[in-house]
């Protein structure tokens, strides 16, 4: 009995720091979502500030911003998900063809390198290309093509494309690794018998590799759908240099919440947008996992 009690005490002692951390970092803010229903007045404190019901949400959804940031978040993510999967599959299939170990490893390292770089440094790299005064495009490429300089950070039109390139550059290596891992898991015997039947490489890819990747694609697609309400804050905030002229094409839920809180000091609007994101995000993750449990129970989170 006493040894069992001693065991329990040791167990709780081990868990204590970790549990305390999750309590403070995750659970206290969860309880703090009531802020979205208050009109915060720092002079009287958060707890004494009056409740105003759904007024903050009412304000938020009356602005055109609500639709804009929702649309941007969803459309950008959808574009990223689809292209990430397509590119990931193609590059993984091709990378798998490279049999020289050195070449294969070097390519893999080169593709992974961008992901090790923070978005701050990525914003420097992008700036080196796009800066209006001395960027590579304005100083070297456009003059060579006989075109006039473009003030990239104030011209919205090319930005969806720029953001897509940066996002792909940043994540292609990871997507490739994910699909490469599934390709390596495919039974070699399938390829050997196909070869005996006279199927060439193209046919092997089309009739063996791609069908075998289907379940990975579906799982990855669904997991990404569950996260579609969250955007990469750094990508949308730092890469466009937080330029006001680009807000129409670069504002997402995450940048909106940040700007409303830190730049406009509008706690009501910011917390309303944040809670909107959390709740819809929560519903999405739950529904995706319920679906996933039917499709592929092994990869469902619960």
């Amino acid at each position: 009995m006493s040894s069992k009690r001693k065991t329990m005490i040791s167990m709780y002692a081990l868990m204590l720091p970790g549990l305390a951390y999750f309590l403070i970092n995750n659970y206290l803010p969860m309880c703090g979502v009531f802020i979205a229903f208050k009109s915060i007045d720092y002079s009287v404190g958060i707890f004494q500030s009056p409740f105003i019901g759904l007024k903050n949400f009412d304000f938020l959804f009356r602005t055109p911003d609500a639709l804009l940031i929702t649309r941007n978040t969803l459309l950008y993510n959808l574009m990223f998900i689809v292209i990430s999967i397509v590119m990931g599959v193609i590059v993984a299939v091709f990378l798998n063809e490279i049999r020289t170990k050195l070449c294969r490893n070097l390519c893999q390292t080169a593709l992974l390198l961008p992901q090790l770089v923070s978005m701050v440094i990525a914003s420097y790299l992008v700036y080196a290309f796009l800066s209006s005064e001395n960027g590579f495009l304005n100083k070297s490429v456009l003059p060579a093509l006989g075109m006039k300089s473009i003030s990239w950070y104030t011209t919205p039109a090319p930005w969806p494309f720029i953001l897509l390139i940066v996002q792909q550059w940043h994540s292609l290596g990871m997507n490739t690794i994910i699909f490469l891992a599934s390709i390596l898991g495919i039974d070699r015997a399938l390829y050997e018998s196909a070869e005996l039947d006279g199927a060439g490489k193209w046919k092997q890819v089309w009739y063996i590799t791609l069908p075998c990747l289907k379940s990975t694609v579906i799982v990855l697609f669904m997991i990404s759908l569950g996260k579609i309400f969250y955007s990469d804050f750094g990508l949308f905030y730092l890469i466009p240099q937080n330029s006001g002229m680009l807000y129409d094409v670069t504002s997402t839920l995450d940048t909106y919440v940040y700007r409303a809180l830190m730049k406009l000091n509008d706690i009501g609007m910011s917390s309303a947008a944040g809670l909107y994101q959390s709740v819809v995000g929560f519903i999405l993750v739950l529904s995706v996992n319920l679906l996933l449990r039917k499709v592929d129970p092994e990869n469902a989170m619960f």
Binding site: M15, G18, L19, F22, I24, N25, N26, Y27, L28, P29, M30, C31, G32, V33, I35, A36, I46, V257, Y258, L261, I267, S270, S271, G274, L275, Q277, S278, G281, F282, V285, L286, M301, F302
Partner: peptide, 27 residues
């Protein structure tokens, strides 16, 4: 119970505002 408490933090979060206010005002 404790596994679920840890896992649940992956599903739902309070968002930036409560977290910001807690870290700056409370802590």
């Amino acid at each position: 119970v404790f596994s679920f408490l840890v896992f649940f933090t992956m599903l739902f979060n309070g968002g930036l505002v409560p977290s910001y206010i807690m870290w700056t005002q409370l802590v």
